[in-house]
């Protein structure tokens, strides 16, 4: 399963690059190219991490931590009395 997923991931990335990068170079969209490559690299890295079960930092954990000062109010809100 891991191998299939890796192949699918590689195929997605390379096909996207082959189709999009020449277009962007021709149109002179340099900033788009940089953002595109950064996002694609980030996405591929996340996918590989997920495939090999390396813990990905969870944004919801972070947000629960950010809002921990108001957790008392939220607990009060979700109590019936």
């Amino acid at each position: 399963m891991t191998a299939v997923s890796l192949i699918a991931l590689a195929a997605f990335g390379s096909v996207l690059c082959i189709i999009e990068i020449p277009k962007m170079l021709k149109a002179g969209l340099r900033k788009e190219l940089i953002v595109f490559l950064l996002l694609l690299a980030a996405g591929t890295a996340l996918a590989v991490m997920k495939l090999f079960s390396i813990g990905i930092p969870n944004p919801t954990d972070f947000l629960v931590w950010v809002y921990s000062p108001v957790s008392g109010i939220m607990k009060w809100l979700s109590k019936s009395q």
Partner: peptide, 20 residues
């Protein structure tokens, strides 16, 4: 990011959203 063609970043973003 003041991109001229916003459509270019949609598919890489979708990959991130999919994994996350």
């Amino acid at each position: 990011l003041k991109l001229k063609d916003g459509n270019k970043i949609v598919l890489p973003l979708a990959l991130i959203v999919f994994i996350m």
